[in-house]
Design a binder for these strands. Structure first.
Lengths: 203, 203
DNA sequence: GTCTATATCCAGATAGAC
DNA sequence: GTCTATCTGGATATAGAC
């Protein structure tokens, strides 16, 4: 009895997982509006009926993906802030880890792109918009705090910390776009170019 | 007779212009797939029949917008390269002009965003893909040449010129996304932050 | 839990009148 | 040159069988 319930749970999880990962891939590359339910069904190899057994609509899948992406990003940002590193080291870590994840981990790149699109698109579900409004400030704030503490110890350039954090995230979003456009031929630039950008040049 | 022909021409131009500008706005904010013909018709205040009198399909409108955007960007890049300025001045000019245009000129920002999306989306017409393949390398190449000549006179940092050009355009794309996400509350960072990025710090 | 078959609706595109 | 009315196809979502 318990074993059957376990197996069922695993089957349910597996089906949901397949739907979500196929949707992520399609939403990131084609956009929510251009992705058809039949595309998702085809990509994940399940039937249309089963998809609707797990999700009420395409939009609900989208919302779940957005929620997962933002919560993961926020958790990562908080974890970074707590690491026992200097501000400069934290920034270097963030840059190298984000770019590495983007180029090596397809799902990570897709999540990043999904959020970037959702941030500007007017064609997303209301609930997704609410989650974004609620959850998308933290990475920027964390980075601004790191920049500020780096300025206090003299290791980071003396510009408005908010501007530096903005440039940081603008760079990351830009790279996400670029990687999506180039796919396999995406080559990372020397990350030291980017790290030096934020470092104070005064010796 | 000639007057009537003239008037007709003007009416045609005006209708086409309205269709294109409405489509640009919608494609940039919602994406091609999520934009319905009825949206375009509503936004531009013309009838659906008239739209199909001027364009065969939604895709044809999209292709025309992409072509116009890329040709304009390439012309601007070539013009920049020919200006009687030092490499550093050209880079400074490019950054300030692009960011200014992005924040002040709605259509410019929309074109930029449209191209950025088209560059990674897999849900665009084949013809648009061909135009992008054909026309989208020039800005990068121009910027790489400017970076290289700046390195020769010692004013630009000594990294691979291609990497610097890549970072330049990644920044611009990132700002286009950011502006689209924030809309009216988009505030430019101090552009000197960005310009200094490329300058050689050695004195 | 999963599938096939089907109903409903709406977007894209056309025809023809003015 | 512009509009209204209409056709057609395909996409979303549901029903019901296994």
């Amino acid at each position: 009895m318990a074993r059957n319930a376990d197996q069922n749970q695993r089957m349910r999880d597996e089906s949901r997982r397949k739907i979500l990962s196929s949707s992520l891939k399609l939403f990131a590359t084609k956009g929510l509006g251009a992705t058809k339910i039949t595309d998702i069904v085809e990509e994940s190899g399940i039937s249309q009926g089963l998809l609707y057994h797990y999700f009420r609509s395409k939009e609900e899948i989208f919302v779940e993906l957005i929620r997962h992406a933002l919560q993961g990003m926020n958790a990562a940002a908080r974890a970074l802030e707590k690491l026992p590193l200097t501000p400069t080291e934290k920034i270097a870590r963030a840059i190298t880890e984000l770019l590495r994840a983007m180029s090596e981990n397809d799902d990570f790149a897709r999540y990043f792109l999904l959020v970037a699109q959702a941030n500007f698109s007017e064609a997303i579900p209301e609930e997704a918009r609410a989650i974004i409004k609620e959850e998308s400030d933290e990475p920027h704030e964390v980075m601004a705090r790191i920049m500020r503490s780096g300025q206090q110890d003299g290791s980071i350039k003396k510009h408005r910390a908010e501007d530096l954090a903005l440039v940081f995230w603008v760079l990351m979003k830009g790279f996400a776009l670029h990687k999506a456009a180039r796919g396999a031929e995406f080559t990372l630039p020397d990350t030291r170019i980017l790290i030096d950008f934020f470092k104070n040049g005064e010796k």
